[in-house]
Simulated assay, not measured.
Amino acid sequence: MHLKNHFSISILLAISLTILFYSTLTTALDEPEYGYNEESADGPKHWGDLKREWAACKGDMQSPIDLSNERVTLIPNLGRLTSYYKPQYATVSNRGHDVAITWKGDAGSININGNEYFLQQSHWHWPSEHTINGRRYDLELHMVHVSPQQDGTNKTAVVGILYKFGLPDPFLSELVKYIVEVPDEDEETNIGVIDPSNIFKDSNMYYRYMGSLTAPPCTEGIIWTINTKIRTVSRGQVKLLKNSVLKYYANKNARPVQILNQREIGVYDSIMADNIPHY
């Protein structure tokens, strides 16, 4: 009887330890490294203190910002922003805080100041991170581009597209069946060939400024281009994105606007630029 009781106790202890392990693991996975609740200890105001590698989050060139008409400067020589995208195989992934589309080969590029920036991935924020004259929109898409440098580093340029509620967005409509079955966090699903030009082709009017990544590590030196054309997205499409990520981020995954400091916000308007006399 003594051995039997000892064996039973050992089995119960092993089961308890197993349950505790998986419970702890699940809790750890559900607790993100940073959050968007401005009142919480891991909120945007504290990102720069959470990790040494995130110190840039306390920098002077942070994103997003408010694109105020009072602060912008017309810069005709910025030129039209034209993309040179091409269809390429892509994957969809749930990164916990957002849903991302990643192209696995050469999906084309944009040209900024004579440098080519190659498209890497796109992801969404709700509500929008950038505001225009104080107005925050319902969704923002970021198209992340990278330009390899000779010293082995990369320069990053992000194109931002703002959306308000209205008719469904055609690109999201194309992805619905994949987002519904988006994999668990940090896993990817192949979604076949995706043409980035279905998202963005070119822009005759946009804002341009120097900023940062809008999430840790908040790396600065990012070239931001925000298209002034506001697109539409359905409430159902935004809800679909929200339901695909960790519950911690379902309500909001947008960083508050940051202080502009002494930065210049350039704006390009093709109509005004074409009407400026050249001597």
Rank of each mutant, 00 (worst) to 15 (best):
A55E: 09
L50P: 14
V146E: 04
A254Q: 08
D98W: 10
L78Q: 10
T156F: 13
N37M: 12
R135S: 12
G79A: 10
R208W: 01
E70C: 01
Q88G: 04
T225G: 04
P168D: 00
I101V: 15
D98N: 10
K252Y: 15
K252A: 09
I276V: 11
Y279E: 05
D30T: 05
Y163T: 10
D42M: 04
L3I: 13
A90T: 01
Q237C: 06
N113Q: 05
T27Q: 07
T232K: 02
L172P: 03
A100K: 03
I230M: 12
D274V: 03
N113G: 05
Q149K: 10
V158G: 00
D106G: 14
N111E: 14
V182M: 02
T26M: 09
L12Q: 07
K58N: 15
G160H: 02
C57Q: 04
K86D: 13
A56F: 06
I161P: 00
L81D: 05
S234T: 10
M272G: 01
S40E: 14
P76G: 05
H2C: 05
G236S: 09
K252D: 11
M61V: 07
V159L: 13
W124M: 10
I75L: 11
W54N: 07
H46R: 11
L20V: 09
G114R: 06
S83Y: 08
S244D: 09
I265W: 04
L74A: 04
K239M: 12
I161T: 05
R95A: 04
D151Q: 00
G166E: 06
M210Q: 10
G152M: 02
E31L: 13
A14L: 15
P217F: 09
F7M: 03
T131Q: 13
P44D: 05
